[in-house]
């Protein structure tokens, strides 16, 4: 005798497959990132660079500002990558300069994104007069030539690493703001936003918990790339002689030795290559992040 099951409330839907333990969107994106070749290559390269600057002094304990030999000593067993125009060690410069360059890049990118997200979110969410005012401010910053504006800021407030970082942030937040604003405008009319509002959500909740997480994917990609841009920016400022003379950085090395490139290529090529590799690795990581969190693009590729 078989007994017939009668307790299922829904004959149609109870046959649907059992729920698998669900992975959070973050974990899904991470798994996807690991599948992107460019992302993984970039991440490995970036980790190597970061590790190099972190444990470099242990392996190669030389002060980057010490004069270890005559100027323009070619790479040798004493100074692995040679010395610069003052006789300072290039490899030590790369190690300590990398710390400064990466830190400036990361912090400036954070500032960029923080300002951009705030302005863009308020602008896109509220619309109307708030939007009009914020867009005007954004446009004002946008029409200023960024490098020139940053040079003015650094000249005005002093050639210190913090000033340089803030200046880079202050001139490069506009694209993040526009991106965030566009995402918010697209999202705010979607059903789940209306549904949230209909369930009693306030503005703060809608902005922070409903719209922001959904607007983040493109912003994360642009934030990643902003690190690379900020490193280049710092390099550019230092190259033009507006770097912090008391802190070794890749851009500073490049700037101070640029006149001697034909005589002592190592003092210019190595910091240049370091900037190139760092920005390249960050771009690759950005690519991988984009693949991981932008499913539509991923399909096409």
């Amino acid at each position: 005798m078989t007994t017939i099951e009668t307790s299922t409330p829904l004959a149609v839907e109870s046959s649907s497959p059992p729920v698998r333990p669900s992975a959070s969107p973050g974990r899904v994106a991470f798994r996807q990132f690991l599948r992107s070749p460019s992302g993984v290559c970039g991440a490995c390269l970036l980790i190597l660079i970061v590790l190099g600057t972190a444990i470099g002094p242990v392996v190669y304990p030389v002060d980057p500002l010490d004069l270890v030999g005559g100027p323009f000593t070619a790479p040798s067993a004493d100074a692995w990558l040679g010395t610069d125009y003052l006789g300072r060690d290039v490899l030590a410069g790369l190690i300590y300069g990398g710390r400064a360059s990466l830190a400036v890049g990361a912090v400036a990118a954070l500032i960029t994104i923080a300002i951009g997200l705030t302005v863009g979110a308020l602008s896109g969410f509220f619309g109307g007069a708030i939007d009009a005012a914020l867009v005007k401010i954004t446009e004002f910053f946008q029409i200023l030539p960024p490098l020139l504006f940053a040079m003015v800021l650094v000249t005005l407030f002093g050639q210190k690493l913090t000033t340089i970082t803030l200046a880079i942030g202050a001139v490069s937040w506009t694209s993040a703001a526009r991106l965030t604003r566009a995402e918010f405008m697209r999202l705010r009319n979607l059903d789940f936003v209306k549904a949230s509002r209909a369930a009693g959500a306030g503005d703060a909740y809608l902005i922070l918990r409903v719209l922001l997480p959904n607007a983040l994917p493109p912003v994360i990609v642009s934030a990643t790339l902003a690190i690379g841009v900020a490193i280049l920016f710092e390099g550019g400022l230092s190259f033009l002689g507006l770097g912090d003379p008391n802190t070794m950085s890749w851009g500073l090395m490049l700037g101070q030795n640029r006149n001697y490139v034909l005589d002592a290529w190592w003092a210019v090529i190595f910091p240049g290559a370091a900037i190139f590799l760092a920005v390249l690795s960050i771009s690759l990581v950005g690519d991988g992040v984009n693949d991981a969190i932008n499913p539509r693009l991923r399909r096409r590729m």
Partner: peptide
């Protein structure tokens, strides 16, 4: 709402 496919926040 009419569209259950889009009326829930996909991230939570």
């Amino acid at each position: 709402f009419q569209e259950p496919m889009t009326a829930l926040n996909p991230l939570f």
